[in-house]
Computed example of a mutant assay.
Amino acid sequence: MNLKQLIKSASARDINELEVLLLEGGFNVLRVLTDTGPYSLCDANGEVFRLRSTTELRQFLADVPPVPCMLVQYLVHEEICGQRGGPVAPLRVPFTLTSQW
């Protein structure tokens, strides 16, 4: 999904949630959750769009109508160290595109 498709889907209220995936290496990717499945936000070349900060994300998505957002971080070190038994759920924190605080 590209930015134009994202804006169109958000305007039509076809988006259930935006997930900002916080990844190792200091970059984030945006995953768009819809009834038809999850989609990564891609650039004009079809490459997954990488963002460096939530400030950059807010600026980039300034024209997108309001949709529910979550910051999502998988706790890889817990999986590697094996500290807990069973599946490890990602950390999910509500996030807004309109306000920094």
Rank of each mutant, 00 (worst) to 15 (best):
L41C: 07
C42H: 09
F95A: 04
L75A: 09
R92A: 02
T36G: 06
G82S: 01
C81Q: 12
R50Y: 11
E56D: 09
F49S: 14
L61F: 02
P38I: 07
G46C: 07
F60M: 13
G25M: 06
P38G: 15
K8Q: 13
M70Q: 14
A62I: 15
N28P: 00
P94A: 04
P65H: 04
L91I: 05
L30Q: 01
R84H: 15
T54Y: 06
L75H: 03
L23F: 03
R50M: 12
L21A: 07
N16C: 11
E24F: 09
G26P: 01
L22Y: 09
R92C: 03
L3M: 07
D63G: 02
S40I: 00
S9L: 15
Q5W: 01
G82W: 09
E79V: 09
L23N: 05
F95D: 08
F60V: 13
L30W: 01
Q83K: 05
E24V: 05
V20D: 00
L57W: 02
L23Q: 11
P90S: 06
L71I: 14
P65V: 13
R84V: 14
P68Y: 01
M1E: 04
Q5P: 00
M1W: 02
L91N: 08
A62P: 00
G85S: 11
L97D: 10
D63S: 07
V72I: 11
S53Y: 04
L21Q: 13
A44S: 13
D35N: 15
L51P: 05
